[in-house]
Amino acid sequence: MCAVNDDQPDEWFRNSSSSVWGVLAIGAAVAIIVVDAITGWHPVTTAGAVLFALVAYAAFIRTKVGVSNGDFVLHHLYSTVRFPMAALESVSVGRTLGAYAGGRTYVSGAVGRSIRDAVKGAKRDHNPLRNQTDFIEDRLNALAQDARDRRRIKRDSEEQFALAEDVRRTWDWPLIGVTVIVAVVFVVLFFL
């Protein structure tokens, strides 16, 4: 199926702390490399720090959810899943984001509630003006409804389920390759 560009501007979401933690983790890895170089270079320490920085990048910086070119997009650690926004039945956010389309659930850790808010569940106040995850949940559900309205597709219709068949997963092979190479180098150096 061909994706329809609904002239919807790109919108991306992640927990506000993700970028901060990612930068801090990568900064810590760089600091370890610098300190190791100053105090007497150990290749295993450098390889471990580089591996840590790569995984921190994948987990905290790369992961996000959003809308791009009329598609719902989930950037995972090493892959990207996308399908037409109109196929999205609903989004709910607990500890992780759950997106439902075509009878399947797509999960992303890019957006999630704190343990305290997740435990409260229905007892907590739903306030998109003060709570980022409530805003993201409401915004994605509204964008999905807008996409269905533009295509004149009813929710839970055969047309919507047909759109959900257009799920595409791509892998970030360069990042996977670099991570595997650094991991192998780290393991070899560790056991030498």
Rank of each mutant, 00 (worst) to 15 (best):
M1L: 09
D6E: 15
D7Y: 07
Q8N: 11
E11N: 11
N15V: 02
S17P: 00
G22L: 03
L24T: 05
L24C: 15
A25K: 06
A25Q: 10
A25D: 05
G27P: 05
A29R: 05
A31D: 00
A31K: 04
I32H: 04
I32R: 04
V34C: 08
D36F: 01
A37M: 11
I38V: 15
T39M: 08
W41A: 13
H42P: 01
H42D: 14
H42S: 15
H42L: 14
P43L: 08
V44I: 10
T45D: 06
A47M: 10
G48Y: 09
V50T: 13
L51E: 05
A53E: 09
A53G: 15
A56M: 08
A56F: 06
Y57R: 10
Y57D: 13
Y57Q: 12
A59N: 13
F60A: 08
R62Q: 13
T63D: 03
K64L: 02
K64V: 00
K64S: 06
N69F: 02
D71V: 00
D71H: 07
F72K: 08
V73T: 01
L74E: 06
L74K: 03
Y78W: 14
S79H: 11
V81Q: 15
V81C: 06
F83A: 06
A86I: 03
A86S: 13
S90F: 00
S90E: 09
V93S: 03
V93C: 00
G94A: 11
R95K: 03
T96I: 02
L97K: 08
G98V: 04
A99D: 01
A101G: 02
G102S: 11
G102C: 10
V107S: 11
A110F: 03
V111D: 04
G112V: 05
R113H: 06
R116M: 09
R116D: 01
D117M: 10
A118T: 05
V119P: 02
V119L: 13
K120N: 12
G121W: 08
K123V: 00
R124L: 08
R124E: 09
D125A: 14
D125L: 13
D125M: 06
D125N: 12
H126V: 14
H126E: 07
P128D: 12
L129T: 15
L129A: 15
L129I: 07
R130F: 14
N131R: 04
Q132F: 05
T133G: 01
T133Y: 00
D138T: 11
R139C: 06
L140Q: 03
L140N: 05
N141T: 02
A142P: 00
A144L: 04
A144V: 10
D146Y: 04
D146P: 02
R148W: 08
R151H: 10
R151T: 06
R155Q: 14
S157Y: 08
F161W: 14
L163A: 09
E165P: 02
V167W: 01
V167D: 03
R168V: 13
R168E: 12
R168L: 09
R168H: 12
R169Q: 15
T170H: 04
W171Q: 11
D172G: 03
W173P: 07
P174E: 05
G177R: 03
G177F: 03
V178S: 01
T179H: 01
T179D: 04
V180P: 01
I181A: 14
V182C: 01
A183T: 10
V185F: 04
F186A: 13
V188L: 14
V188F: 10
V188Y: 13
F190T: 11
F190N: 13
L192G: 13
L192N: 13
